[in-house]
């Protein structure tokens, strides 16, 4: 039986960006990563509308974490004190396409490390791996403003993804990312209006829209994933219908959020199955859910979860 035509085509599309600069472009990356470019909603239209395949950025922390659940810490305990080796392990053993260097250790309430430390770690990781880097501050505005510009400088010309800028704290990072040739992560707290506003603010400072990636905040499965899910769907639709201020690729933070979930971190929960399976499963499930709404870069932690998600991505974006 002939069925009616479904011609849902859109005028807009998600920006396509390429992270990482090779030698010829003034950087030292041996690989670059291109994301974005979707011309339809997820699974909408034809296969060609899907854009570039989403990529996984594996987290490396600048300082040894003290609160990682056992099932996760087990994977990295030998490299916790050496971010360079940690990054290398993620790339060589687990196939990370990007490394997200997360500067938790500079937070005043954690180890309160200084800029010299952050710069050293950045240089170590740049030397250790050839994939592009995400450089992500600690979340304390004052400290990030003091340290992240130095980090940016240490990776100047590498076309890193630097973040995050927020509605009430965007100027110093935007200026330095512009000067050092990086891309920016614009963070909004599950609020689509604020998300747009930050892009406008950065753009008003002369920062190119084509170099912004949006972070809408992430909720883990069972802990608000549906909020992130719907915001991402709404953003994708806004972009497709022509809103240039919303046409950025999206990053989400699945690793941190899903390992906060009870279902992932509780060591002893006999009814839910063994912890070494449960945690990676929860992380992978969160990522898979968000992929259904449209996401371009996924921050993850456990190699087993990464493997599950990579397999799913390769089946869909083949």
């Amino acid at each position: 039986m002939p069925v009616p035509e479904v011609a849902d085509s859109f005028t807009g599309q998600i920006n396509q960006i390429t992270l990482g600069a090779a030698k010829a472009e003034g950087g030292s990356r041996t690989k670059t990563v291109t994301v974005g470019g979707a011309k339809n909603v997820v699974y909408g239209g034809s296969f060609d509308d899907a854009g570039e395949k989403p990529v996984i950025a594996m987290d490396v922390l600048d300082s040894k974490p003290h609160d990682w659940p056992g099932a996760l810490a087990e994977q990295y305990k030998n490299v916790f004190d050496s971010p360079g080796d940690w990054a290398k392990k993620c790339v060589q053993e687990f196939g990370a396409e990007l490394i997200c260097l997360k500067f938790d250790g500079i937070h005043p309430d954690r180890q309160n490390r200084d800029a010299a430390h952050a710069v050293k770690v950045t240089e170590q990781v740049l030397r250790a791996v050839g994939v592009p880097l995400v450089l992500w501050g600690c979340g304390n505005d004052e400290k990030d403003n003091a340290v992240m510009p130095k980090v940016s400088g240490a990776a100047k010309g590498e076309k890193c993804l630097l973040g995050t800028i927020k509605q009430d704290n965007y100027k110093s990072l935007t200026a330095i990312a512009l000067a050092d040739g990086h891309f920016l992560i614009a963070e909004a707290p599950l609020d689509i209006n604020i998300a747009k506003q930050i892009n406008i603010l950065a753009s008003d400072m002369g920062f190119p829209l084509g170099r912004i990636v949006m972070f809408q905040a992430t909720g883990a499965l069972g802990y608000g994933v549906e909020y992130a899910y719907s915001i991402q769907e709404r953003q994708r639709l806004a972009a497709l219908t022509g809103d240039k201020m919303m046409a950025m690729p999206v990053i989400c933070d699945v690793g941190y959020e899903s390992w906060r979930a009870k279902e992932a971190k509780l060591a002893d929960a006999p009814g839910w199955g063994p912890a070494e399976n449960r945690g990676p499963m929860w992380e992978a499930a969160t990522a898979v859910c968000l992929l259904q709404a449209g996401v371009d870069i996924i921050r993850m932690r456990h190699p087993k979860a990464v493997e599950t998600v990579r397999k799913f991505i390769s089946e869909i974006w083949s």
């Binding site: 069972g222 549906e226 279902e263 839910w272 199955g273 499930a285």
Partner: peptide, 16 residues
């Protein structure tokens, strides 16, 4: 029938 696989599926239903 692994609970660690079923629980995330059920949670996904609940959330969506």
């Amino acid at each position: 029938v692994e609970p660690y696989a079923i629980l995330p599926m059920l949670t996904c239903v609940m959330n969506i």
